[in-house]
Structure formats: C-alpha cells, structure tokens
Amino acid sequence: MAQSPKLDDTDRRILRELRRDGRLSNARLAEQVGLSATPCWNRVRALEESGVIEGYAALLNQKALGLPDTVLIEVTLERHDDDMLYRFGKALAELPEVMEAYLLTGEYDYLIKVAVAGTQGYEEFLRHKLYKLPGLRHSRSTFVLRTLKRETSVEP
C-alpha cells in the first residue's frame, strides 16, 4: 500500500484554495497562501506528482444541460463472481447518464447516481439502458428532491 505524502499547513492551504477554484493562476494562488510564485508552483507540482491532486475539471450544471433530475439507484446483481462484477461495472461506466457508481457492501451491490430529464427520462434510462446491463437482478430508485451539499473532494 502506497504511503500518502506528508502535508504541511501550506500544502493544505494550497489544496483548500484550489478546491474552491481550480482555475486560480499560480500568481493569485501564491498570494492567497502567502508564498512567492516559484515555491507555490513547485508545491502544486509536487502535489500533482504525488497524486494528492488527481486532476482539474469544470463543474457542469446538469439542469442547464437538460438533465435537471438526479436519481439514486441501488442495484443487486444475479451473481457476484469476478466476471459478472467486471462486465456490469464496465457497461455501467459507459452510460453517459451515470455520474457516480459505487460497489458496496450490504444489501445492495451498487449505488448509482444518474442525471435524467424527469420521470420520462428516467423510464427511458431504466428500460433502454440499465435493465439491459448484464447480470442485473433487482433495482430500487429514489429521486433526489434537493441537494443539500455537494463537494468534489474532501476538505484537506
């Protein structure tokens, strides 16, 4: 198991600022964390190389993209052998509506978060995509009424 890098207070300040705004210029980031530009750039680079910073992304508004509704789906598979888990996971990852998917312990095998356009969009997703995946035995769904908190990573 790889050991995680030792983070000091300055690294944590850098991570908090980048977590809030991944588009910060190095000069602005350095100013906000109290460093000059070169040491700040070196620290960010080291955080990237060590894997603490995995990447940068734009957060898209799913409502503006015509997919205003979020559904959480619990899925049980017919079998739990390696081949079934691999095939189901691979097929699931290819569905564009799937925003997150987790292999679980407990009563259900997977928890899936999908973006859809209302109940009609959800029915289409179920009938034409999810129910056609290999090995699906049972699913249970819950529509999200409101998002109370959404973060892209943990607070460093």
Rank of each mutant, 00 (worst) to 15 (best):
V75H: 00
R45P: 00
R137W: 00
K113Q: 09
N42T: 11
L130V: 11
V154N: 10
L104I: 07
E94L: 14
G121D: 02
R140S: 11
S25E: 13
S153R: 06
Y56G: 03
L130N: 01
R45D: 15
I53Y: 01
G51H: 03
H80D: 15
T38M: 14
A57R: 08
E94T: 11
Q32L: 15
A58W: 00
D9L: 13
E74P: 00
G121A: 09
R13I: 07
A93D: 13
Y56I: 07
A2N: 13
V114G: 01
E155W: 05
H138V: 10
A93N: 15
G34M: 09
L95H: 04
L29N: 04
K129D: 08
K149F: 01
R137K: 15
R43P: 01
E31W: 04
N42C: 08
L15W: 08
L77T: 03
D83N: 11
G121M: 08
W41N: 15
L7N: 07
R43W: 04
V52A: 05
K132S: 09
L92V: 12
N61E: 08
N42Q: 15
C40T: 03
L47T: 02
E49G: 10
A117G: 02
I53L: 09
L47F: 09
A37L: 15
Y56K: 05
S50T: 09
T105D: 10
L85R: 06
T147F: 05
D81P: 08
D9N: 14
K132V: 07
L59V: 14
V52W: 03
Q62T: 09
K132N: 07
D69G: 06
Y86L: 14
T38W: 08
A57D: 09
L18P: 00
M84W: 07
E97I: 03
C40V: 08
E78K: 14
Q62W: 00
T119M: 12
R146F: 06
E124F: 06
D21G: 02
L103K: 11
G135P: 02
T147E: 11
S50G: 12
F125R: 01
L92H: 11
V144N: 03
T70N: 08
L24M: 12
L126D: 05
D69A: 05
E107Q: 13
V33A: 05
Y102G: 03
L77A: 01
P39W: 07
E17A: 15
S139N: 09
S139G: 07
V75T: 01
D21A: 00
A27V: 15
